[in-house]
Amino acid sequence: MAGSERTAAPVAAPDTVKILIAGGFGVGKTTMVGAVSEIAPLRTEEPLTVAGLGVDDLKGIEEKRSTTVALDFGRITIGDDLVLYLFGTPGQQRFWFMWNDLSVGALGAVVLVDVRRPESSFAAIDFFERRGIPFVVAVNGFHGRHPYPADEIREALALPADVPVLLCDARERESCREVLIALIDRLIADVTSPRA
């Protein structure tokens, strides 16, 4: 072997983690995936039509003009050795059947909450609790407002103490990134904590 030839050390591929971004209709899932993704996100948005009248509850989100009908997809690199693949779920009840397929292989989830309509988050919380998928709750501050502290939200949603509740703004990349880091921290803690 000539002295100028060097053998390159193998570079380990980063670990990839599948994360779901879930919550009720109109809570900001598409916005969150788009804000934090380092690639142009894949979106399956369709305009709301008269066919949805009486089916889709627009109370509190009357300005909404489109909805996710399948999924949103994005990617973010957290560090040299960790890449998150983000899958935003559809929020309307008629599309919830897709959550089962989307959750296959997911290590964790973010449940996005709109405090104007907290009841829209119950189905997502129940979904992940029943399947044993760790999650964090991120309260999306619409128009930059957070009228309730995290402790009050935890109590209103009847969340156990081990579920982190974070205040965020789904429009801001750094805010969304902090939510994802909190989820990764929870996943690591679940793996490394001693079992009773």
Rank of each mutant, 00 (worst) to 15 (best):
E152Y: 00
E62F: 09
R131E: 15
D56P: 00
C168V: 02
P147I: 01
G144L: 06
A40D: 10
A35D: 08
L58H: 05
A123L: 06
A161G: 06
A123R: 15
L102K: 05
L112E: 06
R94S: 02
L157I: 12
G54M: 06
V139R: 07
L53I: 13
Q93P: 01
R173K: 12
P90L: 14
G28L: 00
E38G: 07
D72K: 08
I78S: 14
G60M: 07
V50H: 13
S37Q: 06
A156T: 05
R173Y: 04
P90R: 12
T49A: 11
L167N: 00
E172I: 01
E62C: 12
G79I: 03
Q92P: 07
D126F: 08
G28A: 00
R94V: 02
G105F: 09
V104D: 13
D169Q: 05
D101Y: 15
A161H: 01
A51Y: 07
K59N: 05
F127V: 14
V163E: 11
T89G: 10
L71I: 03
A161R: 11
H143D: 15
V137D: 03
L112C: 12
V104M: 04
V50M: 07
N140W: 01
R43W: 02
F135V: 09
R117T: 03
F142Y: 10
V111F: 06
L58M: 11
G144M: 00
G34Q: 01
L48S: 10
F135N: 06
G52F: 04
L102D: 11
P147V: 00
E62I: 12
G79F: 00
Y148F: 11
T30M: 01
P134V: 04
V69I: 15
V136P: 02
G79H: 05
L53P: 00
A123E: 13
P149I: 01
T44F: 04
V50P: 07
F127G: 09
Y85D: 12
G28D: 01
G88A: 13
A150T: 14
K59Q: 09
L48W: 03
R171D: 00
V113M: 06
F122W: 14
A158C: 01
L53F: 08
M98Q: 15
F142W: 11
E38M: 08
R173H: 08
L112M: 12
A40I: 10
T30L: 05
Q92L: 15
P90Q: 14
N100Y: 14
I61W: 01
K29M: 02
D151T: 09
D114E: 12
K64F: 03
G79A: 12
D56V: 15
D169V: 01
